[in-house]
Design a protein around this nucleic acid. Structure first.
Lengths: 329, 329
DNA sequence: CTGTTAGCGCATTCAA
DNA sequence: TTGAATGCGCTAACAG
């Protein structure tokens, strides 16, 4: 495929390559007659400027890199989707990097991909705050997803704390006083927000007791936690996310436990499938696609030299379905 | 962030820029002492070659573009994930484009992104064969996913026909003779493969009757088809995919129908969630991540000047769960 | 073994 | 308004 280049168009149209360049970029200081001729020739030859060459000279690639921890996680998928659509609408391309939960590689991946793009949108829930702050100046412009506000870059987040609080209120309203929290195994920003909200809730409510049981972030960890949950004597469970909730739901159901009669289970994230379990899962719906869109909006502002809006947070909507019910005593 | 460039390293190390270039690219024809000095300076200055400049001169970007129809579809997500991981392992980046099911834009998107990358991996199930064949030469090297073998590019596919056949055999073994097939609304390559397998099955089995009911490809279309399915008087349903099956399962259950006692339902694709419905879904598990890996392998071969393996096809594994059971007469 | 030179394809000064 | 020249940052001939 010997691609046609600007010089050929220039020769064919009988003008200099600068004129072709001007026409292709819509520079109005070109004689309309010449411009038309150039356009005709360009169309006939199927000419389009080489984006690599443009990138080199212009210093921008019309591409942003998105770094996420796990492409298998429905929430990150939804973030990517919202982001990708929004970026495409603005004529930008997306370079995707899945760090596969390798926290210690996030830094290098972000730095490396940044050099091929105009900025990076970073989703790194487990990266230590110090490392994150040290990393950001080197990859600016950057936008960070689901982390507490930062001095070095705008953030876009879901409010995990308020969602957990509402979920607890919901369970309390149903009479549950002893609740299990299935926490993610490794510390993450959103995990800490959850924990803080739980601590605040138990402080404010003398009758409430929350038992933390460490688990993972997927189906299997939810299922694996079933025995510990049942042994805890709790009447309700707050799962780290919907995947964990679904794994648990499946495992306890297999043990003959009735949900929600014997045990209430609430998930987190609001993935589409949560509506299709039996019983359908009560959960806090994180507006993941919206997070993605918003992250792009912030990046777009940064790239346009505008001031991005202050750190944005979205409140997840608690969706009450049938996996939670009155406590049985 | 004023990035350090090769000339500064050269000056600082007291050598010419070509020497620096040689050292950075591991060219052995450099005095070890000089090489070491250059490396030391480069490290101290934090120098890394500008990938854009390299791309321009080398004519390769170390990036491939992946074009898929819908990032919200679990199967495409899994393909992307397998592909992305495999490419990363080989030091390649992935530029992702979601065409959002806009069939008429796939051509332009593929062509546009191709210019920023070294090749495109195309997943375009609905693009007319003619258009596809016309498109491919212009974007070579290309690899096509889930389409019949092509003259213009290697393909990597799941064998939808054999999977449907096995699913029908399974249902026939359970005594079902009147089966609904919930077909996707729009023609797609894999949809046609399903249809061909169904036609072959009914031809070979005089007692078997398959009723095609057009539906979409998501939850809602499955739910919306519930009444038509029940009115058909069939005892079993073959859904276009797991999403449709889940929507249908949910809707018929809400109508008091017992699955599989009153109605057997089989899905397709084997998305993770299919194991967590009630009852768990019988399905044909398409090895999507494997498809992605394999597509990358083919692309990698193409990029390395090797002959890619012939068109590869993977047989989905039929997973029998509890949503299918003996026919009741 | 090392340095000098010439592009890669384009946008953009600067003169004319 | 247009063209000639310069450079984006780098690699790869080509000499030395």
């Amino acid at each position: 495929m010997p691609r046609v280049k600007i010089t050929e168009v220039a020769r064919e149209a009988g003008v200099s390559l600068s004129t072709v360049s001007r026409v292709m970029n819509g520079n109005p200081t070109v004689d309309p007659v010449l411009a038309e001729r150039v356009r005709e020739v360009a169309a006939r030859l199927g000419y389009t400027a080489n984006p690599l060459a443009r990138s080199l000279v212009l210093g921008r690639t019309q591409t942003v890199s998105v770094v996420i921890p796990d492409l298998a996680n429905p929430t990150f998928q939804a973030i990517l989707r919202g982001l990708s659509h929004a970026a495409a609408k603005d004529g930008y391309h997306v370079l995707i990097s899945d760090t596969e939960e390798q926290v210690h590689e996030e830094r290098e991946i972000a730095t490396t991909t940044r050099r091929r793009t105009d900025g990076v949108i970073l989703c790194a829930p487990r990266m230590p705050q110090q490392e994150l702050s040290a990393l950001l100046p080197g990859i600016a412009p950057a936008v960070v997803i689901n982390r507490p506000p930062l001095a070095e870059a705008p953030t876009v987040s879901a409010d995990y704390g308020v969602a957990i609080t509402e979920l607890i209120d919901h369970l309390r309203g149903l009479g549950h006083t002893r609740i299990v929290f299935l926490s993610g195994a490794v510390a993450s920003a959103s995990g800490e927000a959850r924990l803080r909200a739980i601590t605040a809730a138990t402080r404010a409510d003398a009758e409430l007791e929350v038992v933390e049981i460490p688990a993972g972030v997927d189906f299997d960890s939810g299922a694996a936690a079933a025995d510990a949950v049942l042994a805890s004597g709790s009447t309700a469970v707050l799962a780290f996310n919907d995947l964990v909730a679904m794994g648990l739901l499946s495992a306890v159901t297999a043990r003959g436990i009735r949900v929600p009669d014997d045990l209430s289970i609430a998930g987190f994230d609001g993935i589409p499938f949560a509506a299709y379990t039996t019983p359908p899962l009560t959960t806090a719906a994180v507006p993941a696609a919206e997070l993605g869109r918003s992250a792009w909006a912030a990046m777009h502002a940064l790239l346009s030299g505008e001031e991005p809006r202050a750190d944005e947070t979205f409140a997840p909507a608690v969706v009450i379905r049938e996996s939670t019910g009155p406590a049985q005593h």
